[in-house]
Nucleic acid binder design. Structure first.
Lengths: 243, 243
DNA sequence: ACCTGGATAGTCGTATACAATAGGTCAATG
DNA sequence: CATTGACCTATTGTATACGACTATCCAGGT
């Protein structure tokens, strides 16, 4: 099975590219897989075999397991006890919870963000929004989705509250997953001009307006989803046992 | 249900106490360590050697590492690259962030909680508050802290939003850590009657009042802390390099 | 007496080997 | 022809062995 030539016992060919420090490497692998999921290159339900990943990234299964666990805690992958890892397929309820959470946290953060935002931040945000728009217009949905998530994450980071910013980042990642399952192709989540308008409000220091706008923005995304709980193929038995 | 005897060759003496299924065992170990940290039986800064934990719980280091990683992601323990694991010592900034986050989320959840709370929930909450009070009066600080965290977590769970409830639970755990570092002994975080009052508001369906009360409650806890950033023992060198 | 350099030991990081289990496939029977 | 049973393969879960790095301790020099 292991078709690796394995010339030297402890130094696969792929590894010499990076420095020996494994921490950064693991971080890179994590981001790599994470990005692939967020960009929908790995679709919900896709199985993530440890051996395959280990071979692709040139590390042992041990390291992959660590990363997979972390992804599981971030709820991007689901770890079923002896079936292995697969990209999480969010339920309709989870989708609702995620958007409710975003509604509460992202909107609640807006006043503070408006207070602390710097011209540097504004420039950065404009650049991100611009790139997102370009990606959208050139049909690169994958990049657009990721850029949109990055936009929201960066925005939350301006608040200065790392705890909440990290939470928002995870919510955005999960949102991307939700879009992959319940989103209609063609009608992407975020309208590009929305982000530009939001930046304008913040640049003018209108925190209240920005908050209300973000609320509508998130509601619009959620409304664009077609959340239909697909029926289990064999619910009858469960119903019988439940009764 | 599977009562397989499983006299397998690899069965240390400690392991036969539990069922062979490792998943539940790991969950139990996780909770065990987590509780010890939350109850201040393990104080911030305490080192957590893998070998020692492995021996204590009768599993191999592999399993311990998995649990340690999970605890690290929950920010209860800090994993320094080659120094090992230790109980996290929150910084003053983290403390502020955590309480700001709790302010936003827990208060924001109150209206929904007031809407969905059942008589069963109320009974459960009253019981928890009562036990907390008893623990407080009998001087069992450890139990009181944990019960207080449980109270807030259970409360958040009533909202029905698992994502936010989990977040609150983690914030409460971290709060316990913060109390261990910055709290004054004798003046515990939550006043016991506060929780009882809060239940009353919720029982009467007064979501707004409950929200305001929770806000004051959290502010009171935060105010009771004596957040003094302890000086680094050798800041001079860093200052020199920073200038 | 203090500082610096080296040696040692302890601990973590990684890889590999073994064991158990779940799912799939094939065949046999009603 | 469908269904069920058993076998078999593939994949994960666990443990252990080895290697690398860091911290501590001690000796020597200034």
């Amino acid at each position: 099975m292991n078709q690796r030539v394995k010339a030297s016992p402890a130094t696969p060919a792929l590894r010499q590219g990076k420095n020996g420090d494994g921490a950064e490497r693991h971080e890179a692998i994590h981001r790599s897989i994470s990005d692939a999921i967020i960009e929908h290159r790995l679709k919900p339900g896709a199985r993530l075999r440890e051996d395959a990943l280990a071979e692709v990234f040139g590390v042992s299964r041990t390291g992959i397991r660590k990363i997979l666990q972390r992804l599981a805690l971030e709820q991007l992958v689901t770890l079923t006890p002896r079936r292995g890892a697969s990209v999480t397929r969010p339920t309709a309820e989870e989708a609702k919870d995620v958007f409710d959470a975003r509604q509460m946290v992202e909107c609640g953060l807006m006043p503070e963000i408006a207070r602390r935002i710097t011209s540097n931040d504004i420039a950065k945000l404009r650049d991100m929004a611009q790139r997102e728009r370009e990606a959208l217009q050139s049909g690169e949905q994958s990049s657009a989705i990721r850029l949109s998530a990055d936009f929201h994450s960066y925005l939350a980071g301006i608040s200065g509250n790392r705890t909440l910013a990290d939470f928002v980042e995870r919510l955005c990642s999960r949102s991307s997953l939700i879009l992959a399952v319940y989103g209609n192709t063609g009608h992407l989540g975020c309208e590009s001009h929305d982000h530009q308008d939001l930046i304008n409000y913040l640049a003018e220091g209108k925190g209240e307006r920005a908050q209300a706008f973000m609320s509508r923005h998130l509601k619009a995304i959620e409304a664009s989803l077609s959340i239909v709980e697909e029926e289990n193929e064999a619910p009858d038995l469960f119903d019988i046992f439940a009764s």
